[in-house]
Amino acid sequence: MSQSLALDIREVVKQFGSLRANDGISLQVPTGTIFGLLGPNGAGKTTLIRMITRITIPDSGDIIFFGERLEDRHQRQMGYLPEERGLYKKMAVLEQLVYLLELKGLKAAEAERESMQWLERFGLADRAQSKVQELSKGNQQKVQFIATIAHRPRLLILDEPFSGLDPINTQLIEDVIREFRAAGTPVIFSTHRMEQVEQICEEIALINAGRVVLAGEMRAVRRQYRSGELHFEFDQPIEELELPAEVRVFDRGRYHLNLALPAGRSVNEFIAWLNERNHVLRYEEVSPSLQQIFIEVVQRTAHPSPVAL
C-alpha cells in the first residue's frame, strides 16, 4: 500500500449489542492533510475514532496505519484529543504533562523540556507548578492540547478541539494544527462546527448511521453539490426589472438577485441581457455551504433505504 496514506480503513465493523455502530466503514486519510470527520450525533464517529486510537478493536475489517496493520504499539505515535477530556485536577501542570507524555514513550527529561517549550509558547510557563484546578477553563484546554501534541505524533486526532476557547486561543491552536500539517502530519479533525471545517479541512468524510455517506476533497464535494444558483449585485435599484418567466428566483432585494437559469441557457447571454437594463456590479456562482450539504445528505441518508454513493 502506498506510503502516502496515513490511514487506510477497510470495511470496519463494530457492533454493540443490537446496534451496529460502524457498519462497514472504509476511508483513506492521506498524509499531510487536515481531514474533517463529520457526522450527526450518534453516527458512529466516536466509535470509529476509538478503533483508530486502539481503545477498542473492530469486530471485523482492517485498519492500516502508515502501511502497517494497526497494533497497540502505534498508540504512542498518535495524539488524541477526545471530546470527553479531562486532567487530574490536583496535579501540577508540568507534572501532569510529563506523566501523560511518559505514557507516550518520552523520557522524563525530554517530556519536561518539550512541555516547557509548549507552555512558554502558550503563555503558561509561569503556571507550570500550579495545580490544574487553579487554571481557567481555557488554560486547562491548552494544557490538554499540549499533552496531545508534545510527543510529536505521526497522526493527530482532534475531537472538537476549539470548544470553550476564545477567538485568540482558537487562533493559537489553529496555527499549531496548520504547522503540524505543513510538516506533513495528517490531522483528523472532528467537529459539528461546519464553518470551522470549511476554513480548515482539505478533505472530509461524512458518516451517518454507521456508514460513510460522503467523502472526498472539500472543493470537489462542494462542486458536486452546486445547485446552479447565481448571485447578482447591481449598481441601481432593481424594482423595475422584469425577469423572464422561466427563471427561478430564490431571493430578490433592492440591489441583489439570487436565481437559477433553466438548463441550457447561457449565463453570459443572461448577463448581457441584464446589462442592457441595469449595470451588473458583480456576479458569482453560489456554492452551497457545508452546513447545507451536511443537512441535505444526512436527511437523505437517514431513511432506511441506503443511498448508493
Binding site: T53, R54, I55, D72, Q75, R76, M78, Y80, L81, P82, E84, R85, G86, L87, Y88, K89, L100, L103, K104, Q144, A147
Partner: peptide, 13 residues
C-alpha cells in the same frame, strides 16, 4: 468523572 480516562486509555491498556 474527571473524564481523563479516555485520554488515558488512548495511551495505556
Amino acid at each position: 468523572t474527571n473524564r481523563i480516562v479516555e485520554v488515558m486509555v488512548s495511551s495505556v491498556r
